[in-house]
Simulated assay, not measured.
Amino acid sequence: MTPPTATTVRPSHDSTKAAPAGRAPAPTLDAERLPLAQYLVLYVYVLFPIVAIIAAVPLAWGSFIGWVDIALGVVFYFVGLLGITVGFHRHFTHGSFKAKMPLRVALGIAGSMAIQGPLLQWVADHRRHHAYSDRDGDPHSPWRYGTSAGALAKGLFWAHVGWIFDRERTNKERFAPDLIKNTALNRVSRLFGLWALLSLFLPAIIGGLVTWSWMGAVTAFFWAGLVRLFLLQHVTWSINSICHAVGERPFSSRDMSANYWPLAILSAGESWHNLHHADPTAARHGVMRGQIDMSARLIWVFEKLGWAHNVKWPSPERVKAKLADAPA
């Protein structure tokens, strides 16, 4: 699908829909200054896998990779991914379902292993995103700089990864006060560095023990650690960038959120993004025929096991009412 341009970005089916802001939002009470030490650590966590892969993939590909590396990579990919999609996003940010405390802690740890920031900060950022989606105040809108081709290219980079390096961080006390009050979740968030280290080095430990060799540990660290993390981060970051720029918009929302089917499997259903912004608390995002949503299926399993309850499944009537061409 052709990306939206200055002539096509407009409130096509909702007169209250926000058009692209066209300028960077000024700092407000919504944001706070990130300490320099945390800022530098952030650089290391994000850039290290990228640099390592650029340097090593051409040498490593085809010369050392085994089934243990692939299996560990797939397992750790989906642990981190579903920790983000089911835990950080649908449960902690939007309250799509309620969960028993052991499951809440497990989801918090699993999401932290995607290394996309501590639990409290991630939730605060995403709630702020929904409060100002594609308007001034949105921390990662691709329409931040305008609607021309050059502005959109710059905005896509910002929405995908650039915003992460902005030292103005979302105010957690304002956007995540409910989680701050929870002692267990506060501890999970503060221990983000530990979960990040486990995410990187646990595959190496398991790979070394399974193969009983140092080479098995090295290859597992590379493929199931660095490469897996690189892929996971950029797939989930694509929801911020690609899914607010291109794709289909069958549902009425107040922003430029769109469905982008090529990312549906790799994002565990998060790329059915238009329905999510039309109905943010819905536990299922892929509601139309053929829309695979693994995150919703996992929530269904949790519900059947009695670990989750009060799940906000979107009814057919509610989905129909959210359609762009639904009668007012």
Rank of each mutant, 00 (worst) to 15 (best):
residue 195 W to R: 00
residue 266 L to V: 14
residue 212 W to S: 13
residue 206 I to D: 08
residue 205 I to L: 15
residue 291 Q to T: 04
residue 194 L to I: 14
residue 283 A to N: 00
residue 229 L to S: 14
residue 220 A to E: 01
residue 297 R to A: 12
residue 267 S to C: 08
residue 248 E to Y: 12
residue 243 C to H: 06
residue 252 S to T: 08
residue 203 P to D: 04
residue 238 S to N: 10
residue 234 H to Y: 09
residue 252 S to L: 12
residue 294 M to L: 15
residue 237 W to Y: 14
residue 222 F to W: 02
residue 254 R to M: 09
residue 260 Y to W: 14
residue 192 F to G: 00
residue 221 F to D: 00
residue 252 S to C: 15
residue 278 A to F: 07
residue 224 A to D: 06
residue 218 V to D: 01
residue 281 T to N: 12
residue 274 N to W: 03
residue 288 M to I: 04
residue 210 V to C: 05
residue 299 I to G: 06
residue 195 W to S: 06
residue 226 L to K: 03
residue 207 G to N: 13
residue 284 R to N: 01
residue 193 G to R: 05
residue 282 A to V: 04
residue 266 L to A: 15
residue 270 E to V: 12
residue 225 G to S: 11
residue 234 H to F: 02
residue 298 L to Q: 08
residue 241 S to E: 06
residue 198 L to F: 07
residue 199 S to E: 05
residue 227 V to N: 07
residue 294 M to R: 04
residue 256 M to W: 00
residue 250 P to R: 14
residue 198 L to I: 11
residue 203 P to R: 04
residue 280 P to S: 01
residue 301 V to M: 08
residue 212 W to A: 14
residue 246 V to G: 07
residue 276 H to T: 06
residue 226 L to W: 09
residue 260 Y to F: 15
residue 270 E to R: 10
residue 241 S to P: 09
residue 264 A to S: 15
residue 303 E to C: 13
residue 215 M to V: 09
residue 291 Q to Y: 10
residue 247 G to K: 01
residue 250 P to F: 15
residue 285 H to W: 11
residue 294 M to S: 12
residue 259 N to K: 07
residue 239 I to W: 11
residue 270 E to M: 13
residue 275 L to A: 13
residue 303 E to Q: 15
residue 217 A to H: 05
residue 222 F to H: 02
residue 201 F to E: 06
residue 271 S to H: 07
residue 236 T to G: 04
residue 262 P to H: 03
residue 204 A to Q: 09
residue 212 W to M: 14
residue 218 V to Y: 03
residue 209 L to N: 00
residue 270 E to W: 04
residue 217 A to T: 00
residue 286 G to N: 03
residue 275 L to T: 07
residue 283 A to H: 04
residue 281 T to R: 13
residue 282 A to L: 02
residue 269 G to T: 13
residue 237 W to F: 14
residue 280 P to H: 10
residue 222 F to D: 01
residue 217 A to E: 00
residue 192 F to V: 03
residue 220 A to H: 01
residue 199 S to A: 15
residue 220 A to Y: 02
residue 192 F to Y: 15
residue 284 R to W: 01
residue 280 P to N: 06
residue 204 A to N: 11
residue 216 G to T: 06
residue 273 H to P: 08
residue 249 R to T: 15
residue 275 L to V: 11
residue 246 V to K: 08
residue 242 I to H: 05
residue 261 W to H: 11
residue 255 D to H: 07
residue 245 A to F: 14
residue 235 V to C: 05
residue 247 G to A: 10
residue 267 S to T: 02
residue 296 A to W: 10
residue 207 G to H: 06
residue 272 W to S: 10
residue 234 H to C: 12
residue 201 F to G: 09
residue 249 R to V: 12
residue 289 R to M: 03
residue 207 G to P: 03
residue 268 A to P: 03
residue 221 F to Q: 06
residue 270 E to D: 05
residue 225 G to T: 10
residue 193 G to F: 02
residue 258 A to W: 02
residue 274 N to R: 04
residue 290 G to R: 11
residue 218 V to C: 00
residue 227 V to D: 08
residue 260 Y to H: 08
residue 269 G to S: 12
residue 300 W to N: 07
residue 283 A to C: 02
residue 231 L to E: 03
residue 235 V to R: 01
residue 254 R to T: 13
residue 278 A to S: 15
